[in-house]
Amino acid sequence: MSWILKNNGKILEDICLDPQTVEEEVLINGAIILDSYLKSVTLIRGLGMNTDRLHRPVNVVANEIVANIHDQFEQYEPRAILGEITVDASNVQGMMDITVEIVGVKKG
Rank of each mutant, 00 (worst) to 15 (best):
A31H: 03
T21K: 01
N59I: 10
T99E: 06
N8P: 01
I15E: 02
N8I: 07
T86H: 06
L34R: 05
Y76M: 12
V58I: 15
I85F: 03
E13P: 06
T51N: 10
V92Q: 08
E84L: 09
G83I: 12
V103D: 04
S36Y: 10
A67N: 11
N50I: 13
V61A: 11
I81C: 06
L34F: 09
E84M: 08
Q93G: 02
N29S: 14
L82Q: 06
Q72L: 02
L43I: 11
I98S: 05
D71L: 09
V60W: 12
T21A: 00
V58A: 09
S2L: 01
I98Q: 02
V105E: 14
V22H: 11
T99A: 07
M95I: 11
L27R: 15
G94H: 08
L47P: 02
M1I: 11
I11R: 05
I11L: 13
G108L: 12
H70S: 02
S36M: 15
R79Q: 08
V61G: 04
M95A: 13
E101H: 11
I15N: 04
A80C: 07
V26S: 09
L43M: 14
I32D: 13
L34T: 05
I44T: 15
V100M: 02
Y76P: 01
L17I: 10
I102N: 07
Q20R: 07
V22C: 09
K39L: 10
L54M: 13
L34N: 07
V60P: 08
V60R: 12
F73D: 07
Q20P: 09
L5A: 08
G48N: 01
A62Y: 04
R79A: 05
D71G: 04
P19C: 04
L5F: 04
I98T: 07
I102P: 14
R45D: 11
A67S: 11
